[in-house]
Simulated scan of single mutants.
Amino acid sequence: MRALTEDELRAAFVNAGPDDLRLVAVPADFLFADWDHLDFYAWRDPRTRSRGYVVAEVEGQLAGVVLRAADGSSRARSAMCNLCHTMQPANQVTLFTARKAGDAGAHGDSIGTYICADLSCHENVRLAAPLAPSEIRASVDRRIDGTRQRTEAFVARVLETAA
């Protein structure tokens, strides 16, 4: 991923209104991000834990998505993140929803998926050892590519009605 400035990061959000953009809290380590080793940039809002953000390049264009974490907890014992395909204890995977871009989002349409609660998918796929006892790991390169593709596809689904 190419290096971003804070202004570029804020301008990338496709499903955020002016009020949402004022609330975006850029993480403290933003200036130290190793952009050469990032496939996408994701973080939880340090001020409002129910918010998260994902920024990815979709078809060569930068696109950011504001996420909302669901309240409550799962009764399951384990769960799988739909982006990095990592099995984790259920309390470490959260349902995140994103309002769609454009008119559909203005009318309340949204999409959701289960994602690592701390949005650490980028790091999780780079671990060589499985996180769960029954988890079978593919090669790290394949996991990285798959995670990037699934993240871009999720962001593209938010964008679908904006075109």
Rank of each mutant, 00 (worst) to 15 (best):
M1A: 01
A3Q: 12
A3T: 13
L4P: 06
T5M: 06
E6M: 12
E8Q: 15
L9T: 02
R10V: 13
F13M: 05
F13S: 00
V14L: 02
N15P: 13
A16C: 08
G17A: 11
G17D: 15
P18T: 02
D20T: 03
D20Y: 03
L21Q: 08
L21P: 04
L21I: 11
V24F: 07
V24K: 07
V24Y: 10
A25G: 12
A25H: 12
P27T: 01
A28K: 03
A28I: 00
D29Y: 15
L31P: 04
F32C: 14
A33G: 08
A33S: 12
A33Q: 13
D34Q: 04
D34H: 01
D34E: 01
D36E: 12
L38K: 02
L38S: 02
L38E: 03
D39K: 12
D39I: 08
Y41S: 04
Y41A: 11
Y41H: 10
A42I: 06
W43P: 03
D45S: 04
R47L: 15
R47E: 12
T48F: 15
T48E: 13
R49K: 08
S50Q: 11
S50C: 06
G52M: 06
G52E: 06
V55Y: 00
V55F: 01
A56G: 04
G60Y: 03
Q61Y: 07
Q61A: 14
L62D: 09
A69N: 05
A69S: 13
A69K: 14
A69W: 02
A70M: 12
D71H: 10
D71M: 08
G72E: 10
A76Y: 02
S78V: 10
A79T: 14
A79E: 15
A79R: 15
C81W: 10
N82D: 15
N82F: 11
L83N: 07
L83H: 06
C84W: 13
C84M: 12
H85L: 12
T86Y: 06
M87S: 02
Q88F: 03
P89Y: 10
N91T: 02
N91F: 02
V93C: 11
L95K: 07
L95W: 13
L95Q: 07
F96L: 01
F96R: 00
F96H: 04
T97G: 04
T97N: 04
A98I: 09
A98N: 08
A101D: 09
G102K: 07
G102V: 00
G102P: 00
D103K: 14
D103F: 10
A104G: 04
G105E: 07
H107T: 02
G108E: 11
G108N: 13
D109C: 11
S110F: 00
S110A: 10
I111A: 05
T113S: 09
Y114F: 14
C116M: 07
C121Q: 07
N124A: 11
N124G: 11
L127Q: 14
L127P: 01
A128N: 10
L131C: 09
L131I: 01
L131G: 11
A132F: 09
P133F: 03
P133K: 03
E135M: 04
E135H: 04
R137K: 14
A138V: 01
S139D: 15
D141M: 07
R142W: 05
T147M: 15
R148H: 04
R148S: 03
Q149K: 02
R150A: 09
T151S: 06
T151M: 15
T151W: 00
E152M: 05
A156P: 14
V158L: 09
V158T: 09
L159V: 10
E160Y: 00
A162M: 05
